[in-house]
């Protein structure tokens, strides 16, 4: 077979790879302590000493971005994992069996979707309490279930009457085996791009929640929280908002490219 280079995939992997590596480094080492304040170095513009400059407490923004990206990534990955796991579970069962279970679960799904997702997340946060990372993950995770459920339902329904699935049923394979072993590997082509899109939405959702003040709270920092912090001093320290925003954009852009690349790859094979 001829080798095709998938530009989207390669560019996406490089961009998000750099950010992920930086984030992992940031978990163990940062140039300055992300919480160390310095009265002498308030609101400094980017320089060799402070790559992204400093904020109004004299904290090194680059160090805080490294740390904050870790929080954001953790929340995004956990959110997508919850959404994809439960969404697949629900979607597989409704799509495969159809019938009355499908009707009930999908109408419930519609009810959840009918809420604006940020409002639903707000509701869950207000029930569980603000400022905790795990509550943000829980809230966003629940918000993300319906879209995965709908996607997987459609996919499973399309495989339900494929000849090889009918064969599997006739040979006596159980429904669980058919769903997990016979159908699931075939859904990867749909699921992987959806995971990347979900990841991006999660990053942005976390950022907007922190921006609204219902996400993570100090001393935890996330990119969204820092962005909301930065807007107050945009006129005196524009680099704060620009640098933080740039990291979010690059992260989302990189992962988005991976998703587009995978979709392209998938359509190329078949």
């Amino acid at each position: 077979m001829k080798k095709h280079y998938n530009g989207y995939l390669i560019a996406g992997l490089i961009i998000s790879g750099i950010i992920i590596i930086m984030t992992i480094i940031g978990m163990f080492w940062t140039p300055y302590s992300p919480t160390a304040m310095s009265g002498a170095a308030k609101l400094q513009a980017p320089s060799l000493a402070h790559l992204f400059g400093t904020d109004n407490f004299g904290r090194d923004i680059f160090s805080r971005v490294l740390k904050g990206a870790g929080t954001t990534l953790t929340i995004a990955v956990a959110t997508v994992a919850i959404g994809a796991f439960f969404g697949t579970l629900i979607g597989a069962n409704t799509g495969y069996f159809g019938g009355i279970v499908d009707d009930i679960l999908m109408r419930l799904n519609d009810a959840v979707t009918a809420f604006p997702s940020i409002l639903l997340a707000l509701l869950i946060i207000s029930l569980t309490g603000t400022g905790k990372k795990y509550n943000v993950i829980l809230a966003l995770g629940i918000v993300f279930i319906p879209s995965f459920a709908r996607l997987m339902r459609t996919t499973y329904a399309s495989y339900r009457n494929a000849n090889y699935i009918i064969s599997a049923r006739l040979m006596g394979a159980g429904s669980g085996r058919i769903m997990m072993i016979h159908i699931l590997p075939n859904t990867v082509r749909v699921l992987l791009p959806a995971l990347t899109i979900g990841f991006n939405n999660a990053v942005l959702a976390e950022a907007s929640m922190s921006f609204l003040g219902i996400g993570v709270a100090p001393p935890d920092a996330s990119l969204g929280y820092m962005l909301s912090d930065a807007q107050g001093m945009f006129s005196v320290a524009p680099w704060y908002a620009v640098c933080t925003g740039l990291v979010i954009i690059l992260l989302v852009f990189g992962v988005g490219l991976i998703g587009a690349g995978m979709q392209k790859q998938g359509s190329g094979v078949n």
Partner: peptide, 11 residues
């Protein structure tokens, strides 16, 4: 089955 293209699991 008739259709050999859909009677084997592509995965």
């Amino acid at each position: 089955f008739q259709d050999p293209y859909s009677s084997l699991n592509p995965a």
